[in-house]
Design a binder for these strands. Structure first.
Length: 253
DNA sequence: ACCTCCCTGGCC
DNA sequence: GGCCAGGGAGGT
């Protein structure tokens, strides 16, 4: 990285500020590109760890246009210009000495796509947990990588009510849930991801992902369940909108 | 283990 | 003019 410019305080909030991020990155070479859950992370040539999170509206572009809400620019020694654009500034870019000092990243559960847990492992993690399974799926400590949309979709695929206390899931339900998570992610990735009307998420070439039309419950409040016709219900779980079919995902089985 | 806060664009 | 959307951090 030949030149690094950070122009928004909040983007650098996990370091002391924009100056520290610029200083720690300038002159460094990126030697890896990885992802765990929703965290992007790279090893640098001096042993530091570069971590980025897109939050809700963050995205990286390479040699793109200069857009509003561009908060960080990386000029690479190959001439390419990487921009971090993030209107709502829920995302961040941070540099740490070690993974253990990166908040969030250090506490992530197994990645839902790359290294999903086995049923026995997930069952052990769920044992004794009283929080709603929906909340546990969003809390990245159990399984990492699922957001609000795919958590709702996975629970519907597994026919599990979102308010079921995590510890009450049967082994069969846990197996179904893991399979549903896999199915949901395979489908979403195959379809290029879920671009909503706000177009906050787009494919690298600027096209919208087409998975929205494949969703069974998210954003389908009051519309008929595709399995049974019952109107999809929307409730709030931990102040996150939650969509489910009250028939397919009955409270008890 | 819970709750509040952060932030902006879009829509009612 | 006000509310909602959403991911995580931090504090209680």
């Amino acid at each position: 990285m030949v030149d690094v410019t950070v122009t928004h305080e909040r983007t650098a909030r996990h370091n002391s500020g924009p100056d520290e991020v610029e200083e720690r990155l300038t002159g460094r070479r990126i030697v890896s590109l990885d992802r765990t859950g929703k965290f992007l992370h790279s090893d640098l040539d001096d042993g530091q760890l570069l971590v980025a999170h897109l939050g809700m509206t963050g995205r990286f572009t390479v040699d793109g246009d200069d857009e509003p809400h561009t908060h960080l620019r990386l000029l690479l020694d190959n001439g390419h210009l990487v921009r971090f654009i993030d209107p709502r500034t829920f995302g961040f870019v941070a540099v740490y000495d070690a993974p253990s000092s990166a908040p969030g990243l250090a506490r992530l559960g197994a990645d839902a796509w790359l290294t999903p847990p086995g049923a026995a492992e997930l069952a052990a993690a769920l044992r004794g947990r009283t929080a709603p399974i929906k909340a546990l799926l969003l809390d990245q400590g159990l399984i990492s990588g699922l957001g609000n949309i795919y958590a709702d979709e996975a629970l519907h695929g597994a026919a599990i009510h979102p308010l079921r206390p995590g510890g009450t899931l049967t082994m069969t339900e846990i197996e179904d849930l893991l399979e549903a998570i896999s199915n949901v992610l395979v489908s979403a990735i195959h379809n290029g991801g879920t671009s909503l009307d706000d177009r906050a998420y787009l494919l690298p070439d600027g096209r919208a992902g087409e998975n929205l039309g494949q969703l069974h419950v998210y954003g389908r409040t009051d519309q008929p369940c595709l399995e049974c016709g019952t109107p999809i219900q929307q409730v709030s779980v931990r102040s996150r909108s939650t969509h489910f079919c009250p028939t397919c995902q009955a409270e008890r089985q």
